[in-house]
């Protein structure tokens, strides 16, 4: 599904160059559930952002569904990820001013989907996640676990092929975390490709595959 070849990313501070990613090679096949692990500052989130096309890299090749991402312009990249990739964040990142319903609907708006279709799709996913009763509430009126559920619903609404999750359970207690991880596992069974960043061995174990990062380099694959 996607392939990273010799990816380098660095920042220059003065005349000193700090590498965030160093010679990263990674291939992800469809249907895989990958967990990226590593200590703080090892480049986990950076790698996830590069895969999600939110961040650029300095060197290397990145092919996503037979497209050479490193050759694309920003607009084309945006079109690519908005169609194929869903994001889930540690801090949920819901828009406080919008209701649950409107939050989930937002990605569809940017894909120019008709209002009636949007209604059907949002109703569908609310039903699937059993949060129909909460659709008119605002994010601040929900518990953390419920907010993350909405976040995942939002990530899935546009039927992406790849789900990227940056410490999705980091702000949750263990019970809520477990529920979310079970949801991920179930999604993976239904065919969704998932890449998650996590600190916890336990959560990493849900995945089919673990990548360890240290100082921007993959340790074992």
């Amino acid at each position: 599904m996607l392939e990273l070849k010799g990816i380098y990313k660095w920042v220059n501070t003065g005349n000193h160059r700090t590498f965030l990613l160093k010679d990263v090679d990674l291939t992800v096949k469809e249907g895989e559930f990958i967990s990226i692990m590593g200590p703080s500052g090892s480049g986990k989130s950076t790698l996830l952002n590069v895969i999600g096309m939110l961040d650029e890299f300095n060197e290397g090749e990145y092919n996503f569904l037979n497209e050479s991402v490193h050759k694309l312009k920003e607009k084309q990249r945006s079109a690519l990820y908005k169609q194929y990739i869903g994001f889930v964040f540690q801090a949920y990142h819901l828009i406080d001013e919008l209701t649950v319903y409107e939050n989930i609907e937002t990605p569809l708006i940017y894909q120019n989907i008709k209002s009636s279709d949007r209604k059907a799709m949002v109703a569908d996913i609310l039903d699937r996640f059993q949060i129909v009763g909460k659709k008119d509430l605002f994010p601040t009126q929900l518990s953390g676990g419920q907010q993350q559920l909405v976040g995942i619903a939002r990530a899935l609404i546009a039927n992406p092929k790849l789900l990227l999750a940056d410490e999705p359970t980091g702000n949750l207690n263990s019970k809520q975390g477990e529920e979310i991880m079970n949801l991920f596992k179930q999604l993976n069974h239904e065919g969704m490709t998932i890449i998650q960043v996590t600190h916890s061995e336990k959560n990493a174990a849900y995945g089919s595959h673990i990548i360890n990062l240290l100082d921007g380099m993959i340790q074992n694959n």
Binding site: G52, L54, K75, S78, Y81, K82, F87, H93, I95, E97, T106, P107, Y110, Q111, R154, A158
Partner: peptide, 16 residues
């Protein structure tokens, strides 16, 4: 800025 960043991640282009 949070809202802006999020909208971008969700697929909004600058024009929108």
């Amino acid at each position: 800025s949070k809202e802006v960043g999020l909208r971008k991640v969700l697929g909004a282009v600058k024009k929108q």
